[in-house]
Amino acid sequence: MNLYKYASPATFYPLAGKMIPWFAIPSAILFAVGMYVGFFVAPTDFQQGDAYRIIFIHVPAAWMGMFLYVLMAIYAGIGWAFNARLASMMASALAITGAMFTLLSLVTGALWGKPTWGTYWAWDARMTSTLILLFLYIGFISLQSAIDDTRRADRAGAVLALVGVINVPIIYFSVQWWNTLHQGASIRILGKPTIAAPMLAAMLIMLAACWFYSVAIVLIRLRCIILEREQNASRFAEVNV
């Protein structure tokens, strides 16, 4: 089987349609299982009470936010280097989901911080670098939406995403050093707790659920982007837009 034929938006469109249920349904099941384990099986933390349970969505969201940025940059780079339209479309489709997860991790972190640290926001190194990651996502999305010509939008987005990826480690370390210099303002995360097995299980199940959700939603968005961009191609004439 020649896999390269799926690099064409026209052949990938029906394949994506077939793949979506294979990711959407496991995602729904995993979310249900993960929430059950998280709410009813995992024990209450003796220090933080039930408030800690928000980490079951917070930690997977933060991981997905970072992972999707790198993935987006890789796809954008492939699309730019090999002139592969589908890869560029994939990058655009990934950006919004990545930004959504980054925002989700910031919001859930703030909601967890209020009862635990006593404040919604502290300029902790990890929070600050997550906020900057969100800014980078916003830059990518607004650059792409400001350019009408899709070819230029794809390539300009690729340059920005790659520059961003080189900068992410620099930003991360600079923020960390900045934070340790301003000791007074920072709040230490409580001493490393040994995580109970059901807690870890719930977190991993939720991570898998988020991953399946991302694939499904990105494929749905990718199909929309293909339809939008290829609406003049005759092979899509029969699809109802």
């Binding site: 800014f135 916003i138 830059g139 607004s142 961003g164 900068n167 930003i171 600079s174």
Partner: peptide
């Protein structure tokens, strides 16, 4: 929006 986050370091 593009440049300011990159200026942070």
């Amino acid at each position: 929006i593009l440049v300011l986050p990159l200026y942070i370091p």
